[in-house]
């Protein structure tokens, strides 16, 4: 059996990003993590279903102030991520560095506020089932913010030394995708943790 040339791949881009397998891979990671979140939320309501009072008598749900500020911060940080990507699309390495660094700074602030909030909750993970699931969900998100910060800090550093270009920006694109997820997943968690006990 001979072979003949049926398609020439020489001209195809080697710099795909939104069509690159890695982009799809991150989408897969996001799907998995979203399913974990769904399991946690389902567990939250399952525990609530059989509890006599939820939260238990004398216990307040998490306050509204810090979580709401965090929501705003996370949305803003997604905006700065978007701005960073906008920059590198125009070969503007400075905007890329500034944008990613700003996101890291905003998310670090989120961690600080989250820390204060957790220490002010007034109950611990081992106080009662309510405390267990609330701490789990908050902690879960906390850890995700930390990983997004680490990843983005690396991207910001590489941007600073000029690694990324308009073409070679796969790292930025996938990191941004993950960032949107970490920021966005706070919305359902926020609604469940802060609003469900008040309105449902």
């Amino acid at each position: 059996m001979h072979s003949h040339a049926g398609y020439d791949a020489r001209e195809l881009t080697r710099f795909a990003h939104k069509t690159h397998p890695l982009w799809w891979g991150i989408l897969g990671v996001v799907t998995i993590e979203a399913t974990v979140v769904a399991s946690l939320i389902a567990s939250y309501f399952y525990l609530r279903m059989d509890a006599e009072a939820w939260p238990p008598p004398g216990v307040d749900p998490p306050g509204l102030l810090f979580p709401t500020i965090n929501l705003v911060l996370l949305v803003t940080s997604s905006g700065t991520m978007y701005w960073a990507g906008w920059g590198i699309n125009r070969e503007n390495k400075l905007v890329l560095t500034l944008g990613t660094s700003a996101s890291v700074a905003l998310a670090s602030l989120v961690l600080v506020l989250r820390g204060i909030e957790l220490s002010d909750l007034g109950f611990l993970w081992n106080s009662h089932p309510y405390g267990s699931i609330v701490w789990t969900m908050m902690g879960f998100h906390f850890v995700h913010v930390v990983s997004a910060i680490i990843g983005t800090a690396v991207v910001a550093f590489l941007a600073g030394i000029g690694y990324f270009t308009r073409e070679r920006q796969l790292g930025v694109v996938v990191d941004t995708l993950y960032w949107y997820f970490v920021a966005g997943i706070w919305i359902p968690l926020y609604l469940v943790l802060c609003w469900a006990p008040r309105v449902l």
Binding site: S3, R10, T19
Partner: peptide, 19 residues
Amino acid sequence: EESSPVVVGLRDDRREVLV
């Protein structure tokens, strides 16, 4: 058949695959 079509133009000095 005598011959079958294939893809050409992928480099062989690094690990290239077609997407």
